[in-house]
Simulated assay, not measured.
Amino acid sequence: MNEEIKCIGCGSTIQTTDKDGLGYTPNSALEKGLESGDVYCQRCFRLRHYNDIQDVSLTDDDFLRLLNSIGEEDALIVNVVDIFDFNGSLIPGLHRFIGSNPVLLVGNKVDILPKSLKRGKLTQWMRERAHEVGLRPEEVVLTSAKKNSEMEDLLKTIEKYRKGRDVIVVGVTNVGKSTLINGIIKATAGVQELITTSQFPGTTLDKIEIPLDDGKFLIDTPGIIHNFQMAHYLGKKDLRLIAPTKEIKPKVYQLNEGQTLFLGGLARFDFIQGERQSFVTYVSNDLGMHRTKLENADAFYEKHVGGLLTPPQQDEVSDFPELVRFEFSVKESTDIVFAGLGWITIDSPCVVAGWAPKGVDVIRRKALV
């Protein structure tokens, strides 16, 4: 091949020689793609048709290089975050990479949060959290890539701040960034599912430039991989269990001091000290919860992980990281957040501990709900 052909799914350069390399596609598939005008690499083809994910070989340096290049552009930066995993989907130090470019903070997957949560309160909460990490967005927008009406509102906001510039969309893996861009393309050009989307981390491999009417571009970038996200420790089946696809139904647990709550076999919440009180869990409706005595919790986990306590599945237990403990003394309304899994809201003073797989963050934050 003399001229460079890009996969319209992930942006990688198409090649037909290295089966294990990025952008590989068989000659026969390439010929068909060139005839139809839709050229996909084998990886994207398998992802689109069989939901079969293959690992990518991009390094942290690659992502850093891409981030560094953003500050050199004159563009509107659209930073997409997953509202359900807000802390896990912030890009550390993003404000240092964007130069003087304006930023829109877009909270995606708003449809999975309880309807009782007021949008005004949520956008204010997001703005406060963004300020804490040095990000000063022009506006905070809530959206769902699955709903056309939400997409239209987002497009109007982008157009308001774009002012004739390119639009660069950035986000960590798993925030629904490519789904969002597909929604924008569908809304503006009537083209459905141009970019490969998946619930698995790392499906966009290079920058993808989509032309806008005025000669500028909407630019999708690869998802930045956060290694402390829960998604990196789970298989396909378990990922579907923990990633909510419909509105979360909060569950309330009345706990006494000295009780433990297991979130499947992925995390654990200990009520160490305090008056009997209610704890509200916000996790996927499909994740099983189990209560036991704190003094028996270690033995209970060892006996039941991979069985009663799933995920992980039985055949994955030997490779699953040990759970690591984080203790918190709570004085006011607080969320204890298990990165990529959800959170537990506490309203009364107490001492608690959260456990998560080694490498996955457990943090406290001002209560969202």
Rank of each mutant, 00 (worst) to 15 (best):
I168D: 00
N51A: 12
L34S: 08
G164Y: 09
I225K: 14
L34M: 12
N296L: 15
E152G: 08
N148T: 08
K156F: 09
V324R: 12
E159A: 13
L64C: 09
L263C: 07
S348N: 15
S69F: 00
K366Q: 12
N227E: 13
P357T: 07
P312Q: 07
P114I: 02
Q124R: 15
R276W: 06
L194Y: 11
K237H: 10
A339N: 13
A297M: 05
V352F: 02
V141R: 01
L90H: 11
S28R: 15
S348C: 13
S69G: 05
D20G: 15
I344P: 00
T143R: 06
G99C: 10
D286M: 15
V140W: 03
I77Y: 01
K186V: 04
G235D: 13
L205R: 12
L263Y: 11
G215E: 03
L180T: 02
I336H: 01
I248N: 00
I168M: 01
Q314N: 15
F84A: 10
D60K: 13
E316L: 14
V170G: 04
L266R: 07
R127L: 10
S57H: 15
W125G: 03
F279C: 09
R276N: 10
A130K: 12
Y50H: 11
Q277R: 11
G21M: 04
I83K: 10
D213H: 13
P312E: 01
G264L: 04
K293D: 10
L341T: 03
I272N: 05
Q314T: 13
N101D: 05
E152Y: 14
L66Y: 12
V172N: 06
R276Y: 04
A29F: 08
Q313M: 14
F279L: 08
R43Y: 12
D298P: 00
R240M: 08
K109C: 15
I53Y: 06
S116C: 01
I242P: 00
G183A: 06
G354C: 03
K177W: 00
L180N: 01
K32Y: 11
G23W: 03
T203I: 14
E4F: 10
L64W: 11
N2P: 04
E316P: 10
N2E: 13
D60M: 11
Y233M: 09
